[in-house]
Simulated scan of single mutants.
Amino acid sequence: MGRTVRHVFVAGCVLLWLIPLYLLVVNALTPAAEYAGKPEWTFQGFALLDNLDTAWDVAGIGDSFQSSLLYAVVCGLLAVLVAAMAAFAVVVLPIPRPAFWFWLIYSGTLFPLQMFLAPLFGLYADANLYDTRIGLMLVYTAWAVPFAFFLIRNQLTTMPPELTEAALLDGASFPRIFWRIHVPLMKAGLGAAFIFQFTAVWNDLLLGITLSRSPDVQPVMAALTTLNNAYSSAGPPVILAGALIVSAPTLVLFLVFRGLFLRGVTASAR
């Protein structure tokens, strides 16, 4: 009986996820001129390529797509690198009060992002970083570090300290121990942390609309809201086609690296 209830619950959750996806695809295929003003449940034609082309041009999603790809890849990698070094310092290096440093870094995930928006906006305006790619890259990297640090630190705590002790006895320095021993052993955790941060940066809207306005600087989620504001001229099928464009990178990333992601999450949860 318990197994049946679990299967029914899981099937219901899958159905709740598939229905909106089905509506998204069906209505993105509908020609914009033939859209009746309400969601279509059956295929009314195939105008996906036209809708994608319009979405790419109307809101400048093409430029924003490239910008978001740059932000997600570069900032994700930088955040994971900084987080790995910080986790190594907290777990492996003989620093005083490691618990204090852990909570100091991890506290970045505990406060709502909205409380930083006003100070960030003022700071960026004064420093001429507003509406610049480097400004967004700085804040995205800093924003992504705390959670990546949490994941990587959890995996580091599962590694036996004898590894470090043996390397020190052999004359290895701490940087060499980090790059030659711990980084290879943490590949799965580093990969999982990167996937998390890539997804977080890619899906960001709040920082994007607060700290940028130009189409070639704004992240793709902000461009999608611009397309949504053009509702009357573009039409829902075009907006949904834009949503398909925005959804593709994170879906492809997870499908390609799902094995690495699961291994990394498992290693960090031990």
Rank of each mutant, 00 (worst) to 15 (best):
I245Y: 00
R258I: 00
A241Y: 04
R258K: 10
G264S: 04
L240E: 09
A234T: 10
G242A: 03
G235S: 10
A234G: 11
G264D: 02
L260E: 11
L251P: 04
L251K: 03
F254H: 15
F261H: 14
F261W: 14
L240G: 09
S247V: 05
T250M: 14
I239D: 12
F257C: 15
I239F: 04
V246D: 02
G242K: 00
G259P: 00
V256C: 08
A243P: 05
L260A: 11
A230T: 05
V238W: 03
P236A: 15
L244G: 09
V238D: 14
A248T: 15
A241W: 01
V246Q: 00
L240W: 11
L262F: 03
P237W: 05
F261V: 06
S233H: 03
A248P: 07
R263E: 13
L253T: 09
G242C: 05
L260R: 15
A248H: 03
L262S: 14
G235D: 10
L244V: 11
L253C: 08
L251G: 05
G235Y: 01
R263F: 00
Y231W: 12
P249M: 04
L244F: 05
T250N: 09
L251H: 03
V252D: 05
L255P: 08
L251C: 08
V238C: 09
R258N: 09
P237D: 10
A248R: 03
V256H: 05
R258Y: 00
V256G: 06
F261S: 06
L260C: 03
G242M: 04
L260K: 14
A243V: 09
G259D: 10
V256D: 04
L244M: 12
L255K: 12
L262C: 02
V246R: 01
L255M: 15
L244S: 09
I239V: 12
G242D: 14
F257V: 07
